[in-house]
């Protein structure tokens, strides 16, 4: 009989402890980021969209070879002066898994992952066959705070 009451009282006290934890948090600061008005700064190593510094690229095809999902497509031709020239350099964002291996493998740091993260679009065709040679390719996505 005494145990019965002890159980009830102990149970009530234990529930109070739980209530105290939530009460403490009731007045702590909210951790939410109010997204469209408030934006997070991406970290330095953030892996966003694949981007290209065109003048640095030596067309070594390392990035194309390392890509686990084969989302990069590159072709070049040789000019009369034995210089390599782009035919195309396409990037299929639908397949990209943002692993950053192309960035890591590039001998001249030509290909890199930028800091764009707001990449919602209305059509899939905008994600397919992104022309890396076009400097304005991410114009509509680029955020002013992104370098």
């Amino acid at each position: 009989m005494i145990k019965y009451f002890i159980n009830i009282v102990a149970g009530a006290i234990s529930l109070m402890k739980g209530l105290f934890v939530t009460f403490k948090n009731l007045f702590s600061k909210a951790v939410t980021v109010q997204y469209p008005t408030q934006k997070l700064q991406m970290t330095e190593r953030y892996r966003g969209l694949v981007d290209l510094r065109i003048e640095k690229c030596i067309k070594c095809y390392m990035c194309v070879k390392i890509c686990p999902t084969a989302c990069l497509a590159l072709a070049h031709k040789e000019t009369a002066e034995k210089k390599k020239e782009f035919v195309y350099f396409k990037y299929n964002m639908e397949l990209c898994c943002f692993c950053g291996l192309c960035d890591q493998v590039c001998p001249t740091q030509a290909i890199y992952l930028n800091q764009i993260y707001e990449i919602a679009v209305y059509g899939r065709d905008k994600l397919r066959d992104i022309d890396l040679l076009n400097t304005e390719k991410y114009g509509e996505w680029a955020h002013p705070t992104v370098k």
């Binding site: 939530t22 948090n25 007045f27 702590s28 939410t32």
Partner: peptide, 13 residues
């Protein structure tokens, strides 16, 4: 609102 603040969120804003 109460649940949001208990969970350190804002709730509907």
């Amino acid at each position: 609102k109460v649940s949001a603040h208990i969970q350190t969120r804002y709730g509907p804003m």
